[in-house]
């Protein structure tokens, strides 16, 4: 039988309200308070333990609280972790989000919680944790538990996830494809023409891709003195030594390479080439400097316009590469830049 561990706060554990909000975490066998409703709704799973923690303790001493809870869970790691429902209680919502995320990361098991849309925990954790849309207060306990546990039962028995909307949890920005029944009305052609007709008539329609607002990145300050700057070159154009020693993929790359250019005045054709599959490689292979401008950088180095060029360039392939992979690769590259005292980067994309 599959196992579940639940997390609730001091109030739902029935040990007290505000006066017990600094309660340190403890674990108890079986169900406590509302966890009985969770157990009742579970089809083929057993709640083995209930974790309890005061909301203020979790909020003010988060690191300690999380560490302690993860410690308490050792030896009782379940198949699924459930926190809440937290309704509109802000501190409880943050606690549920925090602990779900920590448990997921530490034990690689799914974690679920439930909150009202106005709970600040929703905005903070919706991208990391599956949060079901819940009611304002405990009168909705039954309904909220039902919704969440319907999904828990599916998850535990290996049935497919029908998607955030169908299951009733907040969208996470995680988009996957879904197959529709095989009929003309479901073809993209029919959907497109009918969407246009509704748009024409001012009738409601639903775009299948809502464009999210763009993310702003804080601007890094300029280098104060270019003539002392150490500049590094990074490319997503897939320029690599001809034998592609790091076996960087030509699309959907997960690997990157770091190539020594000390003593080189330019990138020679035949020595370097591109393995990027998203564009016509003829020009880049004939003269790799059109992608990684080593020759021009050397000229500026000689002129003293920059202090010096970092002795390596970094390369991967941009096409089809996920943001998560790109982020990881950048994080792996950064220590190399820091170690050499690099002060600025020229990033070339194809």
């Amino acid at each position: 039988m599959k196992t579940v561990v639940c997390y609730i706060n001091q109030f739902f554990a029935g040990i007290g309200g505000e006066e017990k909000a600094y309660q340190e975490p403890y674990i108890q066998e079986g169900c406590v308070g509302p966890v009985q409703a969770i157990q009742a709704a579970l089809e083929d799973a057993q709640v083995t333990h209930t974790l309890v923690c005061g909301d203020n303790y979790m909020g003010s001493d988060t690191e300690k609280a999380v560490a302690r809870i993860l410690e308490l869970l050792e030896g009782h790691v379940p198949d699924l972790f459930i926190a809440g429902p937290a309704f509109q209680a802000g501190r409880y919502g943050l606690a549920c989000g925090t602990i779900c995320q920590a448990v997921q990361e530490k034990f690689s098991i799914p974690a679920l919680t439930s909150m009202h849309p106005e709970n600040p925990g929703v905005e903070m954790f919706r991208q990391k944790v599956i949060i079901f849309q819940g009611g304002k207060g405990a009168v909705k306990m039954r309904a909220d538990v039902q919704t969440m546990i319907r999904f828990a039962n599916k998850l535990l028995s290996g049935q497919p996830n029908e998607g955030a909307e169908a299951e009733g949890y907040f969208p996470r920005g995680c988009r996957h494809e879904k197959f529709l029944e095989d009929k003309r009305e479901n073809t993209a052609a029919y959907r497109g023409v009918q969407m246009l007709i509704r748009k024409m008539h001012g009738q409601p329609y639903r775009t299948e891709l809502a464009i999210p607002a763009p993310e702003q990145v804080p601007i890094a300050p300029a280098v104060s003195d270019l003539s002392h700057a150490v500049v590094a070159m990074v490319t997503s154009g897939g320029i690599v030594p001809s034998d592609n020693p790091d076996r960087i993929q030509s699309a959907s790359a997960t690997r990157w390479g770091r190539y020594d250019i000390s003593g080189m005045e330019r990138l020679e054709a035949g020595v370097f080439k591109t393995i990027h599959a998203g564009f016509d490689p003829t020009a880049a292979n004939a003269d790799p400097n059109v992608v990684v401008p080593l020759d021009a950088m050397r000229a500026y180095e000689k002129e003293g316009k920059i202090g010096r060029l970092h002795p390596y360039f970094y390369s991967t392939v941009g096409t089809g590469t996920t943001e998560a992979e790109a982020r990881r690769m950048a994080q792996e590259i950064i220590p190399h830049l820091v170690a050499d005292g690099v002060t600025a980067v020229i990033l070339g994309s194809t």
Partner: peptide, 13 residues
């Protein structure tokens, strides 16, 4: 990539 590098404090062109 550009985001991560900027976040780490490197100005990126």
């Amino acid at each position: 990539m550009v985001k991560e590098l900027e976040k780490a404090g490197f100005p990126v062109a």
